[in-house]
């Protein structure tokens, strides 16, 4: 996983609540056996009509957001299915940071395993970012060390993220390698299980 400390990028606003992972990547695209190449299917049913032609009315098809790398959405982003294909698709499409007024638990966790920074801001702060990026091309910077979000204007916000996940993202650690440093404790736990429950 690539470490991420700071990121500056163009904001893409998606002013909806309860965006579920079925919308982020519909089920017909979950059949691949690799982690790559899911970006082309991101928000597929919202982006394309039944002929596969981009829908003009869906804002992600607007050329002004072509280089966006920060997605801002409403509450409960990423609810529903646990499919990690959702963060894979967002990342492959070019998103490095997701800002929302709240996240679904599994999706939040899945982001941090893939080097995507999930940032929870208040509803008011999220709405400001949405309004500004809807009306104009809007760039913001996030700093994972300082836990801040700063706009190219007067926008300033700070956020919380569990320390463990922040460290993982900052360092791009291989989590399994970290866990295996505790292998003797797992061995010991299993030995005790064997003794107490015969398992």
């Amino acid at each position: 996983m690539e470490p991420i400390r700071k990121h500056t990028g163009l904001v893409y606003p998606l002013n909806r609540s309860n965006i579920d992972t079925d919308q982020i990547i519909p089920k017909q695209f979950l059949k691949r056996i690799s982690r790559q190449g899911f970006g082309q299917f991101l928000f597929f049913n919202w982006r394309f009509d039944s002929e596969g032609t981009p829908k003009k009315e869906f804002s992600l098809n607007d050329p002004k957001y072509k280089d966006a790398s920060i997605l801002v959405a409403g509450e409960n982003f990423g609810c529903g299915s646990s499919r990690e294909h959702a963060p894979w698709a967002l990342q492959d499409f070019g998103f490095k940071v997701i800002i929302a007024s709240s996240f679904a638990d599994i999706f939040y966790n899945n982001c941090t395993k893939n080097g995507i920074v999930p940032i929870q801001l208040t509803e008011e702060e999220t709405q400001v970012l949405i309004d500004r990026s809807e009306s104009d091309s809007y760039t913001i910077s996030i700093d994972l060390e300082q836990k801040t979000v700063n706009g190219s204007d007067d926008f300033h916000a700070s956020f919380e993220i569990p320390e463990y996940q922040r460290e993982m993202l900052l360092n791009g650690w291989d989590e399994i390698a970290v866990t295996l440093t505790h292998k003797s404790k797992i061995d010991q736990f299993e030995a005790e299980l064997q003794q107490s429950r015969g398992e």
Binding site: S82, P87, I106, N110, K183, I186
Partner: peptide, 19 residues
């Protein structure tokens, strides 16, 4: 429910980091 990275973690270690 867990994501695929966590599936890999459980396969390798039979554990998960959980708050």
């Amino acid at each position: 429910g867990i994501g695929t990275s966590e599936v890999e973690h459980v396969l390798a270690t039979q554990t998960l980091w959980q708050a």
